[in-house]
Simulated assay, not measured.
Amino acid sequence: MSLSIRNQIAGTVTAVTTGEAMAAVKVRLEGGQDIVAAITADAVKDLGIASGTAVTALVKATEVALATGPVEGISIRNQLSGTVADVATGPAMASVKVDVDGGGLTAAITADAVQALGLAAGSPVVALIKATEISLATA
């Protein structure tokens, strides 16, 4: 299956906390950073997700926000440190490629945000992703 979702990062499940309808799945990415995906309890069961399961985390580029450093006082817990690899800016929007340990991410943000944050190749950034915006795939 081919997907339009550009952000696909491999990892291994380290913990699953299942509630009545939803589950929080902690994933250790290949580079050592951790993320949490909030998926349905049915998906955990249907995909056979358990500690040790190899997964691919999928995130649409429009769901990745960027900051110039770690952000405190925010409910977004997925904060991946990385470095800007490339910025392609158009009149309104920009595509920012970020190298993170274990893979790469693309963030679709406004051109104004690129300018305001001073983003360029080599800039240190933190990619912010809500747990509810991460999907998981198994092989």
Rank of each mutant, 00 (worst) to 15 (best):
D46L: 04
S51G: 13
K45E: 06
I134K: 10
G73W: 00
A21L: 15
T62I: 10
T17G: 00
L136E: 01
V87L: 09
D42W: 11
Q79K: 09
V25Q: 01
L29P: 02
A50D: 03
V100Y: 07
I109C: 05
I5F: 06
D101C: 11
V64D: 03
A67K: 06
A38N: 13
A54D: 06
V100F: 10
I129H: 06
A50M: 04
I129D: 00
A65N: 07
A65F: 03
N78V: 05
K26C: 05
L66K: 09
G73I: 04
G52C: 08
G32S: 11
Q79V: 14
A113K: 05
S4W: 11
A85T: 15
V13W: 01
G122D: 11
D86Q: 15
A116C: 07
V71Y: 07
G73A: 11
V71T: 13
V44D: 00
D112C: 10
I76F: 13
G122P: 10
G104F: 00
A65V: 07
T132G: 11
Q115K: 15
A37C: 08
V84S: 08
A120N: 15
V71R: 12
R28D: 01
A139H: 09
M1C: 10
A41W: 01
A41R: 07
T56L: 04
I5W: 03
V114N: 02
E63M: 10
D101R: 12
D99K: 13
E133Q: 12
I109A: 02
V27N: 00
L119T: 09
G48P: 02
G11E: 03
V96P: 08
S135N: 14
A67W: 05
L3W: 02
V64S: 02
M1V: 14
P91Y: 10
T68H: 13
V25E: 01
I76E: 05
S51Y: 03
E72G: 15
T18P: 01
T56A: 09
K130Q: 09
T17P: 00
L29G: 05
T14R: 04
L119I: 11
